[in-house]
Every structure is written in C-alpha cells, then in structure tokens.
Amino acid sequence: MTSATYDTKYAIETRNMHIYYGAFRAVKDVSFGIERNKITALIGPSGCGKSTVLRSFNRMNDLIPGARTEGEVLYHGQNLYAPDVDAVQVRREIGMVFQKPNPFPKSIYDNIAYGPRINGWKGSKAEMDELVERALRGAALWDEVKDDLKKSGLALSGGQQQRLCIARALAVEPEMILMDEPCSALDPISTLKIEELMFELRQNYTIVIVTHNMQQAARASDYTAFFLMDKDDRAGQLIEYDTTSNIFQNPKDKRTEEYISGRFG
C-alpha cells in the first residue's frame, strides 16, 4: 500500500492465513507468496476454498456477513487486514473478474468509464474516450465493439461480456487482477482468447486465476497452487505450491499427482 515498509519479492504473501465463515473454518493455515508479473493458478476440487482464498486478496470476503480472516496477508509488506487499511483502497489496487460475467446494465462505454469515474478520475471527454479505447484494446475487445460503444453491455455474447469485465477491471489501472474461473461459462474459442489476453497482461499485471480446467492451468500459468479439503475438519489447505511445470510434471505430493492425473476429486 502507500507506505512500503519493506519489500518482499512477492506481490502478495500470506502467512498462516485462516478464513472463517461464522464458526466454520473454510481455509486453514495457508502460507505462500504470489510472484510479481506472473500468472498463478489456484486449483483443487470443488469446495476446497480456492475462491475464498482469492477473495481474501482484495478483501471481497468482507462483503459476506460473518466472514473473518486471521493471520497476515501482506501486500507490499503491509498487512491488508490491519485495522487502519481501507478495503476500498485495497480493491482499487487489486481488481477482480468474476466467474459469471457481470457487466452493469449500462452502455459498453459507461461500463468501462464507471471505475475511473468513481475513483476520482479527472480529464476531458476526449481523454475518457482514449481511456475506454485503451482498456477495450487491452482486453482484446476493441475491434468487436468499436462501432457501437453505446450498446448495452448486456447485449454482448458471454465471452465478450467477460472480456468487457476484464476491460472494466483494467480501466482503473490496478496492480493485480484476480480471476475466479473466468472461462467456466465460455466456449473454447473465447477461452483461448482470454488465455492469450492473460499472457499479454502479464507484462504489466500480476494475475491470480482460479480454474477447474487442468489444461488451462498447465497452459496458461507460471505457478500453480494446489488446495485440498482436510477430511477431518473440512477446511481447505494448501497442499503444494510450485512452478506449473513442476506441479504438473514432477509433483512432490502424492495427492497432487492423483488430482492432476484425474484420479481424484
């Protein structure tokens, strides 16, 4: 955040993080670091807490009544859950793309302009036009919609909507982008487009993506974290975290191997 007391080599580092929904511990004792300007994939069977961990990185869990995070989530060395940290500022710097495309019922243009406007953006109409174009180009959507920016965001196809949501996240120039199964509602071609897009975005952004698609994780990520639910207390834990090639070709944990080879979960 603003006062970087000490810089770690990670964009985000969790230390002994536990996440609770009321009395239920959904995630326990997660400690790992997300590398800068890399794509990190979170994989694991359903219900193991991937989304929960992802949401803890920009404090979206705060919106769920009764959700609570213990331990530390360090961003530039600053604990995001320290009492003096404002969740709004965290989300301003760490953007999010959701599983289901959720454009606002506004025009494409206004969908993109919304983020900058609420964040105190100042500039002329021409500059906003430019910003909108840059964001749409960044999300590889510009060529498809440039003639009709007044059209409702809801009138786009699912894949276009998802790229609109990515463009919307890019428009506020975050440092990090979190994506929760962004391709689960999309066809293979749209999925490939979004994967290509992630590769381009990697130059400027740190990306964390949750996915159920093993090929996608193997193809499109640099690092992979494998989560699994503890059979006894049903809490998700981090089983193995390594470079994607190591996880997929040379997993150290037997459970990881079983999961990625499809014998499990």
Binding site: L63, R92, M96, F98, F104, P105, Y114, G115, I118
Partner: peptide
C-alpha cells in the same frame, strides 16, 4: 443482482457509490 454490487465493490467503489450509482 448482488453480482452487480460485487462488480462495483471490486472496482474500488465505496458503499455509498455502489448504492447510489448501481
């Protein structure tokens, strides 16, 4: 839909901005 609220919060909107604009 709460997905709209989440989208707004995810962009760094405050509660009031989300209520007022979305």
């Amino acid at each position: 839909p709460s997905s709209l609220r989440q989208a707004s919060y995810g962009l760094g909107a405050t509660k009031w901005q989300t209520v007022w604009k979305i």
